[in-house]
Simulated assay, not measured.
Amino acid sequence: MAKNYYLKLKKLFLLISFFICANAFSQILSSNLEKKTLALGEVNRFTVKIDNLNNQEVKAAAKDQLLPFHFEEIKDSLSVQPNSYQRNIEFSVFEEGTYTIPELEFKVGDRVLKTISYEVEVVNTAQKGDPINDIMNNKEVKLEVTDYWQLYKWYILAALAFVALIIVIVMFVKYGRKSKDSPVVATNQTLKELDSLKKKKYIEEGNYRSFYVELIDISRKFITKQYKIPADVLLTDDLIHLMKENNTISQDNEKVVEDVFFRGDLVKFAKTFPDQQTMEKDFSDIRDFVKRSSKDIEFENLRKDV
């Protein structure tokens, strides 16, 4: 009887020791959002902490790029110790609505740790119908001609500038649009913009968020100008659907746009972290797509003629 009791105690001791060791050597991630409801422009704080690092490196999104784009990051501070990692982010939101901080990935060694998701409600604290009190009674002032000029001169000048702008646009459409809207001009201009993007070294520095934002912006403007598709105002899903229905862009070029644009959306919402090789390939594919676009235009013109 005593022997069985001793064996049970021994097993219990070993089990407790196992759990203690497991917890002692495993990383523990915790996160905290200070406020779930914010006023417009109010500062909030989001904290991520990882313990039991044991000198392991932590990989995460770059500075000022951890949160989705609706969250205006004010301060992104990082504290790294041999056994702990802490990241404190102060941010504001300047539009009413409910916004989500998604699960965020932190890679420790071979392990990927994720935070929980948070919802933040942003409200306008100014209430409709709030009284506005004058600090003094109104006074009637007699205005001279020069006073009216001072009051309205900017409106008059703006109207004259608007008329001049209309004249310039008419002249441009009448005399200069055909040559500047040619496929070759659009292609060369976009290739120059891509070269400028390459020189910013976003790929080499691992700044994937800025890279994809500018790459997709350049591509959208190019598609809008070259193919007369409103890519600058359409969501990615609607753009891909319209391209497939339109049949103006070849299937190879459609595939490039679809892959790069969907990856760009995932990067924008911090759902994927592409490596340098992927960014190089996406840049090269978009550049080749721009170069091949003139063949799409030639085929479309031939089809219209037939």
Score class of each variant (00 low, 15 high):
Lys75Arg: 14
Tyr175Met: 07
Asn83Arg: 00
Val306Pro: 01
Gly264Ala: 13
Ala61Gly: 04
Trp154Lys: 15
Ser293Pro: 08
Pro131Val: 06
Met1Thr: 14
Glu90Lys: 12
Asp110Ile: 07
Phe289Ile: 02
Thr47Tyr: 00
Gly206Arg: 05
Thr236Ile: 15
Ser179Gln: 06
Ser250Cys: 08
Lys153Gln: 15
Gln65Cys: 06
Gln81Asp: 07
Glu205Leu: 14
Ser284Ile: 05
Gln56Leu: 14
Ile169Trp: 06
Ser117Gly: 04
Val93Cys: 07
Leu78Val: 04
Val185Leu: 00
Lys107Cys: 02
Leu29Trp: 00
Pro230Cys: 11
Leu151Glu: 10
Gln56Cys: 04
Arg303Ser: 13
Phe211Trp: 07
Ser92Pro: 01
Ile286Asn: 07
Tyr212Val: 10
His70Val: 14
Thr125Ile: 12
Asn188Ala: 02
Tyr5Cys: 04
Phe172Gln: 07
Ser196Ile: 10
Ile116Trp: 03
Lys225Gly: 02
Lys192His: 09
Ala39Thr: 02
Arg287His: 10
Lys180Pro: 00
Cys21Met: 13
Leu151Phe: 13
Lys49Asp: 01
Ala2Gln: 12
Lys75Ile: 11
Leu66Ala: 03
Glu193Asn: 13
Glu254Tyr: 13
Gln86Phe: 00
Glu105Ile: 05
Asp237Cys: 00
Ile216Gln: 07
Glu258Ala: 13
Lys142Tyr: 06
Leu33Phe: 04
Asn124Val: 08
Gln276Arg: 07
Gln81His: 08
Val145Met: 12
Asp259Glu: 13
Ala60Arg: 13
Glu300Trp: 11
Ile156Lys: 14
Lys153Val: 11
Lys244Ile: 11
Ala159Asp: 11
Asn44Leu: 08
Asp265Cys: 08
Asp265His: 09
Asp296His: 01
Glu280Ala: 08
Thr98Leu: 09
Phe69Leu: 11
Val123Gly: 02
Phe94Pro: 00
Phe299Asn: 12
Pro82Ala: 04
Met243Ser: 10
Ile167Leu: 15
Tyr208Gln: 06
Lys75Met: 09
Phe262Val: 04
Pro274Val: 08
Gly264Asp: 04
Ala231His: 03
Thr98Glu: 15
Ile50Arg: 00
Asp134Leu: 15
Phe289Leu: 13
Glu258Thr: 13
Ile229Thr: 12
Phe69Ile: 09
Lys268Cys: 06
Ile74Tyr: 12
Lys304Asp: 05
Leu197Ala: 02
Lys35Ala: 07
Ile249Glu: 02
Asp238Val: 00
Gln86His: 01
Glu95Leu: 07
Gly264Arg: 11
Asp51Ser: 01
Asn32Pro: 01
Arg292Asn: 13
Leu160Glu: 10
Glu140His: 09
Lys49Ser: 04
Asp282Ser: 04
Ala60Asp: 11
Trp154Ser: 15
Arg263Cys: 03
Thr272Ser: 15
Asp305Met: 10
Leu197Glu: 03
Ala161Cys: 14
Phe106Lys: 06
Tyr208Glu: 03
Thr190Pro: 02
Leu53Asp: 01
Leu53Glu: 01
Val141Pro: 03
Ala2Arg: 14
Asp237Glu: 15
Phe19Val: 06
Asn138Asp: 14
Glu90His: 08
Lys128Gly: 05
Tyr212His: 08
Phe69Lys: 09
Ala231Lys: 05
